[in-house]
Every structure is written in structure tokens, then in C-alpha cells.
Design a protein around this nucleic acid. Sequence first.
RNA 1: GGUAACGUGCCAGAGUGGUCUAAUGGGGCGGUUUGCAAAACCGUUGUUCGCCGGUUCGAAUCCGGCCGUUACCUCCA
Length: 552
Amino acid sequence: MLKVYNSLTHKKEEFVPLQPGKVGLYVCGVTVYDYCHIGHARCYISFDVIQRWLRRSYEVTFVRNFTDVDDKIIKRANENGEEPLALSARFIDAYHEDMDKLNVAKADIEPKVSTHMDWIIRLTEGLLEKEMAYRVPSESDVKGAGDDVFYRVEKFKNYMELSKKNLDDLRSGARVDVDSRKESPMDFALWKSAKPGEPFWESPYGNGRPGWHIECSAMSWAHLGTSFDIHGGGKDLVFPHHTNEIAQSEGCHGEKYAKYWLHNGFVNVKDEAKCPVSGKFLAEIPEAEHVTVQLGEDMYICGSADCAEKFKAEPDTYLKMSKSLGNFFTIREVLEKYSNESLRWLMVSTHYRNPIGFSDRLLEKAENRVAYLYETRLAVEEYLSQHEAVEGDSIAKVFARDGQDYNPWADFETFMNDDFNTAGAIGVFNEFLKVANLLVSGREKEWTGSKLKPPRRARLLNEWTTLLAKFTEVIGLGESDPESYLNQQRSQRSALRGIDEARVNQLIADRKTARENKDFAKADEIRDEINAMQVVLKDTLSGTRWTIQSDL
RNA sequence: GGUAACGUGCCAGAGUGGUCUAAUGGGGCGGUUUGCAAAACCGUUGUUCGCCGGUUCGAAUCCGGCCGUUACCUCCA
């Protein structure tokens, strides 16, 4: 049974769709005036996993819009001397590129404001008829500009149901100049009359364009009807955006708008300090071991007394190395330095409603986990290419503990059904990956108490491979080809650190020769040289693999 | 100023009344393995859940207060 936390009721509830077997899902999309940032990544990755999970049990209609008519777009376009719709089209393309990299699937329907003006007008008409909205003459001198239309907030009883605020607090906190033509300061614009230098559309109220909130009410109506199952978005949209959406849609249709409201938490960028000598992140070292060093006016923190000594002796040498890596904001900036799946892993490893810390250190950790995932897959593939399988017991039986079958998928499902708890689910997944490594390295005895013959291991690894696909399909990680993924990840790191791959390969070949000649002194000398380049070697049965040393 | 969310061990992060003396991952330490490493795997470390008080037979988990962090309060996912 699936349970979801509903922001509307502030409780976890059993998920029961309006129509059996079907789910209508609407997620607020981007306002396309710039590249997507990590906050967008969080939201769309979260709902991508949610959507993937729902599709296992329901026929899902997933709608995620583009807001391509908006103040910020117009402002940016005017600065660039570009048509607003041309600018938004560019950023829609950029959005798709970014989301492809993050393995975020396209929504079933991705509607745009600019092609839904008729729905927006129908909705506005409906609200005017019910006197939930009112017209006031435009102050604009643009020819054809007629009226502005405002929503009459006082007429909608449950206005604050979602945000748990009260109108009086909002009034007192208002920080924007009040438009004196409004009946009440809280009233918001449904339709804005045309202004100089702005695009406009025709309407019964004269030329103009829609207000900010109406587009989601209109597009969800167009594609999911007046009432649907799940509405999602970032927590920051609770007020005013979602609050106003409810007011508009319920005010017009007189029906419950969305049954469940799901809101993802924020991304908090952290600037994390490193020890200037060892380069280690101070957060990784117990505070008791930190040593403060004062140089003139400036204070520095080292990770240990040893480091502090070295630092005092040669501060200039170390200060050069400690330059800040800076904070990242756009998805593109992050993906220049880290592999695409590392960002997704980071996002999925925290529950979607909780705040998530964002820093180089955490990305680096995520990067290493993704590498572990692919290295495991690679090792399994190698093993299976070398060993034939024979029939035997299943993973559940062989890895049973305390008389209980080992059933990672069931555990995974339990977590996912508990408000899409991907963080817990990832914990199960981690253990599942370990199972493969145990078998590949012939160490299953550590878990099961007895050793298996290779054909039995191969049988279990075949089963494992099938099962793995079920996990990766849900979390959207580990679905690429392992070899090419790892190579890509390595090339990215090599390029960033100026490591010459050809040189590394040459040294590895030299070392291989030395090892074949049993000249281990020479081989180790070469390896030291390689290690000095921040390259780490891994000797396997099928040859030497190499990776770039992690910053951690 | 108003409102809300969050605060878990060295770090990240699950856990919302009793098999929690806290899943999982990272780190540290010890080991298996390896020509030596790396990787992988095993063991171990951490009595502790922001602080104070209360409810309860029993609390990380419920209630109250305090402190801290983050965010929102008309156009940010």
C-alpha cells in the first residue's frame, strides 16, 4: 500500500486515486528564462522517481509545463534584444538537454503557456461570471490594452488551507507596493493589460497577457481535467503559487482541485572548508583534532597538529592549493566537474521532502558511490562471461539471515511505498550491490557461512542482474553501459586535473612488462610515478584498470 | 516582525511510542586478499538522537519552552 505525505492535510495518507488504476500528475515546470539550477534538478529528479514508481502500479498521465510567458522572460529578452518566445524556446531546449543528462524522463505532456491562451481566458471568464474576479481599467497607454483582471481573494473561503498562514499576517508582511486599483492588497492578477515593449494576446478584456499563477490552473484543466490526483512542486511554491492555483481552479470549477499535494525540499549550498595542507574536508575530521593557525590577521584551520606545523613552516606553498572551489548553481556548471549520475545519486539519497546539503564534498561522495555501482556491474559481467551457470537455490535462500529469506526487492518496495523514501531504498540497494561483490570475489561465505562453486555463483549473478534492472529502472541510476560510463567519468576527471591519459597508459604498459619480468622494484617505482599523478591502479584478472584518486 | 520546516553518532542519512544498546554509505582502526598496492570483502569503533522540562510501565519518536539552521511572507523548484 502506497502512502504519501499530503501537504494539504499535513499528514501521511493512503494513496487512493480518483479513478481506479489511473493517476493524473501535474508538476510545476520551469519559467524558461535561464539555465536550470540545482533546485530544479532536485525537484525534477524527485518527481521523476515518483513518476517511475507510480507507473509500476498505475496508468499515469504526467503533465509538466513550461511557463514561457512571464515578466522575467520579457525582461531578459528585452535586455538581449531577442523575441521573448525565441528566448524561452532556447531555454526549453537547454532544459531538455540538462534533463536528458540527469536521466529525467520527459513528461507525457509538456504544455506551454503561449499555446494555452484560450484555456486561460476560459478560466478567467468563469471566475468573472462567479464574481470571484473583477476587471479594472488599464493604466497602460498601449493601444488596445483594455482591463486588468484581479482575483477577489476575500471571496474564496479556504484561501489559506494549503499554506497554513492567515490573511492578516500576510497583509502586515506585504513588502510590495500595493496597487491602489485592487479591492484588497491580497488580490492577484489573472490578466495583465498590455504594456509598452511587452508581447500581448487578444482577450475579451483587451490585449494583454496572463498573470503568473493562472497558467498552471489552465494547463492542468486542459490536460487532466478539473480535478486530478497529484500536484507537485518545490516547497517554495506553496505560497503564493499553489495557494492561488487552488483559489483559481476551485473558485471556477467548484470542485476539489488536486487530491494530494507533494512538495519537495530545498537544496542548501554549503561552502565547506578544507585543510590547507592535507586537502581534507574539515567536516570529515573530528572538531577536537582541528588546529587553528594564525598568520597575521588571518585565521586558518588545519586538520591535525602535523598539518598545522607544516602550514606554519611554509604557508605560501599551501595557501596556493587551498583556493576555494566556489559554489555551483546551474546544472551545467555542476556537470562540468561531476558525472551526471553523481548529481542524481546525491538527490535520490535524501528523502524528497527533507532539505539537502549541496557541496563538492557530497558530490564527490556520490560520485564514488556511482563508480562503485558501475564497477560492480562490470565485475559481474566479467564473471558471467567466464563461468557457466547451473541450476540451484535463489538469492533469497542462499543469502537468508536468521531464518529469514533475503528479499531486497520487498524491502525496497516497502521504503518506496512509504512516501517514496528513496533514502531508505538506497540503503537496501547498497547492500544488494555488496551481494554481487561477495559472489564475484568468492567471499559469499562471509555472509552465508558456506562457500559456493563458480557455476552456482554464476546462477546467482544471473538472478542478481535481472533483479538489478528492477532497482535501476526505479531510481534511474546505473542504467548506462558500465565500461563507457566509467571511462567517461575518468576522462572528465583527467581533463579537469590535466592528466595525460596516453602517458598513464604507457606507464601501465611499462609496469606490466616489469611485472612479467618479476622486476617488482621497477614495477613499484612506475606505480609510484603513476600515483603521483593522482592516478590509482587496480589490478584485476583481466588486466590493470585505473581511476583518478578521489578528493576525499 | 509574522509563519513554517528542519536539528540523529567524525560525516552523510534512514528511523515518528517497545526486536532502536539507531538501517545504509563514507571515515578511522584491525584483518582477509594481493609479489606489494589499489579495489573488493570481513570485523571493529561510536550508549547516542540540539538543550531543558513534561506525558508514559516505556521516547530519537508525543507535548511545552528555549537555542540554532533554513525557507516563505506577490511572481524562486
